[in-house]
Amino acid sequence: MNNNNREERKSEKGVKGFIIAMTALLVIVAAFTVGSYNGYDPTPSSVSATAFVLIVMLLLTTVWYRTKYPGYSNDGTEE
């Protein structure tokens, strides 16, 4: 494991753009599947569809950062 805190900071515009788009998609999925319903017990399908988008976003972001900064893990020491 590379704990080198001198890892060069790289451009992250791509992944951040991806995250913004996925966040918008997540809200659209939730709004579309729930609509104006404001009662009790949300439908499992709307919750799971929304959560699915979130999990995909989280996993792909993980892969991106592990690929962009392979083996990097901040050991807590500041620059």
């Binding site: 966040t23 972001t61 592990r66 893990s73």
Partner: peptide
């Protein structure tokens, strides 16, 4: 019979922490 939007607020809680850890604090651990 009694749960309201809690599943969605929990999704939001996860999402909010994720977004801040990426865009602000840079604590995302992957």
């Amino acid at each position: 019979a009694t749960v309201g939007w809690e599943p969605f607020t929990d999704i939001g809680t996860l999402l909010g922490a994720f977004l801040v850890s990426i865009f602000v604090s840079r604590r995302f651990q992957a």
